[in-house]
Design a protein around this nucleic acid. Sequence first.
DNA 1: AATATAGTGTGTGAAAATTACACCATTAAA
DNA 2: TTTAATGGTGTAATTTTCACACACTATATT
Lengths: 232, 232
Amino acid sequence: MEEVKLPTFDSVFSIDCVIFGFEAGELKILLIERNEEPFKDWLALPGYIVEQDESIDDAAERILYELTGLRDLHMQQFHTFGEVNRHPQGRVITVAYYALIRINGQKELRPISHYARKAFWHPVNELPKLAFDHSEIFKTGFNKIRRRLNYQPIAFELLPEKFTLTQLQSLYEAVENKKLDKRNFRKKMLSYGFLKELDEKQKGVSYRAAKLYKFDRRKYAKIFHNDLNLDK
Amino acid sequence: MEEVKLPTFDSVFSIDCVIFGFEAGELKILLIERNEEPFKDWLALPGYIVEQDESIDDAAERILYELTGLRDLHMQQFHTFGEVNRHPQGRVITVAYYALIRINGQKELRPISHYARKAFWHPVNELPKLAFDHSEIFKTGFNKIRRRLNYQPIAFELLPEKFTLTQLQSLYEAVENKKLDKRNFRKKMLSYGFLKELDEKQKGVSYRAAKLYKFDRRKYAKIFHNDLNLDK
DNA sequence: AATATAGTGTGTGAAAATTACACCATTAAA
DNA sequence: TTTAATGGTGTAATTTTCACACACTATATT
């Protein structure tokens, strides 16, 4: 990193966001290209400073919006990074959030703040070096969702509303990084009873069209009414 | 709460600790009696402000020590609380930590700082109202360890080094708040292979003395060498 | 119309894990 | 010696998990 004279500050709170998306069978995260020192021109997770009068949850939403144009995601904090020398300009404590979204929601990525030059999706495999300690933050977040995938219905936030079982399976395979058996996977998923089979089929494919399914949040809640408050 | 004139501050970082212990078949947490406004005389979780030049993990250790006299616990952060109006004097963001310890480690509870009048163990059932939003912090932490009990070897941190299977079972029963079947519990625990049977027996009981066991951290690590890095 | 292509959709048996369940053994104290 | 209290043990039924292979269907190509 180049030497630059910059003001220092005392103690700051910030938010960083690890936003996961799924596209073309690959798991991706949202990165920005920084337009300011330090780490100008580096790739980084979307993140910025929390204001005095906003909760950290609100800050996370606002910051993500300003840097990427994305709004109304359901973000969850997953870890707080508080080492002393994380930031070249002074003490920064950072609460990291993740969210899972549908990339193909035709949402345009368009930074509002000039602080990011652009925002784009990048596959989680072969991530480049990121600014600050963002590589570590990403890793921690990725491990978190990997765990959660198996006991929370987070997969459905990454898929289009109507999806095929094959899509669902390939998402699991991407996250767990291993092949799953098709028959067993389907049997198990369907046995839960929270997938609603639709009367529709896939369109525009040059092979036998697959049935479409929807995640039935109502049924899910009914089945697992128990530990909904264990989430936090 | 009474009205008191106090200085306000801008933005502060703090740590709160939820320290679990197990004694007489009951799960307990460590509380302090506050000696300062606000919430003077109230019961609260041990907690205080993070310094400029210490990491949050270090701060957690220091603060717990100053308020309770306890040192060298293995603390883990579990959630960060960042609502705007959590504290009557201004903006405070708090990273909450938990730890599990052996109460009968003959450790004396003796606050160093005058900020706490005393520190003591209190059963988690029937907790009184706590200062600030500490009741919520406790609840969140309790839910966390309840989950973790089933996939991490945290139970052993609460028991004496040498323990009987009945003690282990009653700990699980206390945390999950339900009765377990003795034979199945023993079969399962022993089947993991990380409990080391000792040649000793319980002493001083007026009934058949039970065998003592030890948790074998080495074997545990060998068996679950896999996702040790998924912890965070 | 025939064929190639590519992904969809289905069942069974073996192995492993989980659950339900009851009685005798041991010790200290009365 | 009796009582009170807890320790310690096995088996069968059920459920869950896992491994495994082939025919079906829609489309594109010739």
